[in-house]
């Protein structure tokens, strides 16, 4: 059976969907990805859907699910390279994918993920110094 590869790159996971997703494949991807995020404690997930030309409401929901699940496991999800027709279809289906970050291409998506992770780390540092200050 087909399987969509999940690549690890530093603190991020890369998923490139090269085929049109059918329901079973999407469900498997969802399960695999969550397992992988847990196993590698990844900070970010980057899903490239530039080769996907057909979406339905189910696909939209799966992407939303992946984002929410990753969020629970402390990883941000960025969807990159959506085609105009796909974007229009999702909007017409009433699926604006709230909570999913988007970027135009891989490069911009990577930049966005990095900046998001920097921010959270900064926040953590600030909390640390704040605590230190109180301790003193």
């Amino acid at each position: 059976m087909d399987k969509i590869p999940i690549l690890r790159m530093g603190a991020f996971l890369l998923v490139t969907i090269q085929v049109d997703l059918y329901d079973r494949l999407a469900l498997n991807l969802e399960a695999d990805l969550v397992q992988m995020v847990n196993k590698t404690s990844a900070k970010g997930v980057l899903i490239d859907i530039s080769a996907v030309s057909i979406v339905d409401s189910f696909m939209g929901r799966i992407i939303g699910n992946i984002a929410s699940m990753s969020k629970i496991l402390d990883a941000e999800t960025v969807v990159v390279g959506m085609q105009p027709a796909v974007a229009i279809t999702l909007i017409e289906l009433g699926l604006p994918l709230k909570g999913v970050h988007t970027a135009l291409d891989m490069e911009k998506g990577m930049k966005l993920l990095k900046s998001m992770i920097d921010e959270t780390e900064e926040d953590a540092d600030e909390d640390q110094t704040h605590d230190d200050f109180i301790a003193e």
């Binding site: 969807v79 959506m82 974007a87 604006p96 135009l104």
Partner: peptide, 12 residues
């Protein structure tokens, strides 16, 4: 709103 959401989905 639709146009804005679609643009957001594209990553802009």
């Amino acid at each position: 709103i639709k146009t804005v959401s679609a643009t957001r989905l594209m990553g802009a």
